[in-house]
C-alpha cells in the first residue's frame, strides 16, 4: 500500500441549511425542521410552518424545505400544489374563498365566482394589483349544508348569492374601511 496521503472520498457537501439572505424566518423554519428530526413525513407540517412565517411559499422557500428535509424538490412542489391551503403566490390583505364542491356548485357557486371576478376585475386565483384582495376557489370546505358557502378572510358565510357576495367584499375593493 502506498504511503501517499489519500484524502477522504470527496463526498458532496450537504447543502447548507442556513439561508444566504440572513432572514431570521429561515432560521426559525430550520429550527422547526430540526425539531421534527427532518423526517420526510413532516413535510406538510413544515409547509404549514413555512406559510405561517412567510405568508406564501415561493420557489426559494420550497427549495429550502426540500434541502431541509432532504426530499426531492418535485415531491415538495407536488404536495404544496395538491392542497388548496398552500399558497404559492402572495395573497391580498383580504381573501375570499368560494367553495366549488359539488353541493355548492349545484347551488350556484359558479355564478358567485363570476360576479366576484367581475366586481374585482380579476380571475379566480388572482390578487388585485393593489394587493388588497385575493379571490380563490376550493374543492369542498365541508360546509355542504349551507351551500353555496364562501369564506371571507376566516369567516364562513352561508347561502351566498352573486349579490350578497359582491356586497360583502365591496369595502375591500373600494379601499373603504373593513
Amino acid at each position: 500500500m502506498s504511503n501517499v496521503a489519500v484524502s477522504p472520498p470527496a463526498s458532496k457537501p450537504r447543502a447548507p441549511l442556513a439561508h444566504p439572505s440572513g432572514d431570521k424566518r429561515f432560521k426559525m423554519l430550520e429550527v422547526f425542521m430540526k425539531r421534527q428530526q427532518q423526517r420526510h413525513d413532516a413535510l406538510i407540517e413544515v409547509l404549514h410552518k413555512a406559510q405561517e412565517l412567510f405568508g406564501f411559499l415561493d420557489t426559494d422557500l420550497l427549495l429550502f424545505v426540500a434541502h431541509g428535509l432532504r426530499l426531492p424538490p418535485s415531491r415538495v412542489y407536488g404536495v404544496a400544489t395538491f392542497y388548496h391551503f398552500f399558497k404559492l403566490k402572495p395573497q391580498g390583505a383580504h381573501t375570499c374563498v368560494v367553495c366549488m364542491g359539488t353541493a355548492c356548485y349545484v347551488k350556484g357557486a359558479q355564478q358567485v365566482v363570476e360576479a366576484l371576478e367581475q366586481a374585482a376585475h380579476i380571475r379566480a386565483g388572482e390578487t388585485t394589483p393593489d394587493g388588497r384582495f385575493s379571490l380563490m376557489t376550493a374543492r369542498c370546505i365541508g360546509a355542504c349544508g349551507i351551500a353555496p358557502a364562501v369564506v371571507y378572510d376566516d369567516a364562513v358565510a352561508a347561502r351566498q348569492t352573486p349579490a350578497s357576495a359582491v356586497e360583502r367584499v365591496k369595502g375591500w375593493l373600494d379601499h373603504g374601511p373593513r
Binding site: 427549495l63 426531492p72 424538490p73 418535485s74 412542489y77 407536488g78 400544489t81
Partner: peptide
C-alpha cells in the same frame, strides 16, 4: 423515482389542473 432514482418528475396540482412537472415546476 423508482428505476432511475432521480425523482425529477412528479405530479403538481390536482384534478383537471394536474400537470407533470420537473423539480419545482421549472
Amino acid at each position: 423515482w423508482y428505476v432511475e432514482g432521480a425523482a425529477t418528475k412528479n405530479f403538481s396540482g390536482r384534478g383537471a389542473g394536474s400537470r407533470i412537472i420537473s423539480d419545482l415546476n421549472q
